[in-house]
């Protein structure tokens, strides 16, 4: 169980005791009889200056998009979000932004834990099995990239 580094900043309430039993169930299940389908992570409402980083889009394109927002878009600050595998890339983008701005930009990073849902569909021939859902947690990072106030 990944505890967020800064509990005060965690966005998703920790309801660990509720789903630990479901995960333990999932460990016991027979892998052949179930099909695993992952649901998408919960989407959060998105403002114009939010950038959700993924692993599919080209890195340079994502970086360029952030730069455009900061320079052309007239935003004083943007938030770069990354989940799981994309955490690395989110950090990378934020650092690149900072480096290219010659110190004008500042970073403020937060981490959180995101709850993900998996569906387990039974494949048994007598069809008595209930489909199960299990939850697991994944880490996420939210980096605020901003120009500090002049005063």
């Amino acid at each position: 169980m990944t505890e967020p580094r800064n509990p005060g900043m965690s966005s998703v309430p920790q309801t660990a005791p509720v789903h630990t039993d479901s995960t333990s169930q999932a460990v016991e299940m027979d892998p052949v009889e179930y099909t695993l389908r992952k649901r998408l992570p919960r989407k959060l409402p998105k403002r114009r200056n939010d950038v959700y980083v993924n692993m599919k889009t080209d890195f340079r394109a994502q970086l360029a998009r952030c730069q455009k927002l900061l320079e052309g878009g007239g935003h004083r600050e943007i938030c770069v979000h990354g989940l799981g595998l994309a955490i690395n890339r989110a950090i990378n983008i934020a650092l690149q932004l900072q480096a290219s701005s010659q110190g004008a930009l500042q970073l403020a990073a937060n981490t959180s834990t995101v709850e993900l849902v998996d569906d387990l569909e039974p494949e048994d021939p007598d069809e008595a099995g209930e489909p199960m859902t299990r939850t697991r947690n994944n880490s996420a990072i939210h980096i605020k990239v901003f120009y500090p106030d002049p005063q």
Binding site: M9, S11, L44, P45, R47, E77, C79, A108, N110, K144
Partner: peptide, 12 residues
């Protein structure tokens, strides 16, 4: 809830 997340990110 969602607003709160956003708020937290903005006004730490």
């Amino acid at each position: 809830l969602h607003m709160s997340l956003m708020l937290m990110l903005v006004i730490q």
